[in-house]
Design a protein around this nucleic acid. Structure first.
Lengths: 103, 103
DNA sequence: CACAAAGTTCGATAGTTATCGTACAAACAC
DNA sequence: GTGTTTGTACGATAACTATCGAACTTTGTG
């Protein structure tokens, strides 16, 4: 399947806010921000099923929050910090600077 | 009915992000920010029903984004900018500084 | 080739949400 | 009192969402 990523200019604020409003997805974004190396989806030790993880990653990707790329049998994920900082300056920093809550 | 407002320390980030992720509610918050006078709920010319407006204002209030107070037959609404700026510094500014989209 | 690893797709389900119309309540004006 | 204004409560409904398990695909490894 093709991975659809919105262009920078197509990243919509309500979609970004909605993507970040789920505790699991918020935690994913926090961890991606702490460790800026792209990392596979499976490297988050959440206690939820693989198909649910797929759903959350797709939500983040389609909102323009993350970028995903196939790499062998896994899929590397990184934060679209550059694009988000241009479109919505300060938003990601504000979200990330608040205390983390266990997912 | 009693109006429940969360304490400042009880304002949860996912709830705030969710409250702001709806285009109607985002527009309400933008207008409250532009004109800092408390204003009645009916003073937003949205083309949605009164009961839906009640729903959106309740969502914003229970998330801790707005404060509401009865004043005669109407109800005055104002942004909880002080509390939001303490709990999540920069968040509201980042959201408000992005271009407005018609609801 | 067979097998393992990492994700996706496909229902299914239970819960939430945005919307409406109608009926109701509270405060005010007359 | 009768209305008027402003908003709430109550169903109802259609759409969306978070979750799962089972089957599948793709890539790499032996």
């Amino acid at each position: 399947m093709e991975l659809h990523h919105p262009e920078r200019s197509e990243i919509e604020l309500p979609a970004v806010l909605h993507a970040l409003s789920d505790p699991h997805r918020l935690e994913i974004v926090r961890r991606l921000a702490e460790n800026s190396e792209p990392r596979p989806c499976g490297s988050f030790g959440f206690d939820i099923s693989k198909s649910t993880m797929t759903h959350h990653f797709r939500t983040l990707r389609e909102a323009g929050v993350i970028r995903q790329e196939r790499q062998g049998t896994s899929k590397l994920t990184e934060l679209r910090r550059d694009d988000l900082d241009v479109m919505y300056p300060g938003l990601l920093d504000a979200v990330l600077s608040s205390k983390s809550v266990p997912a």
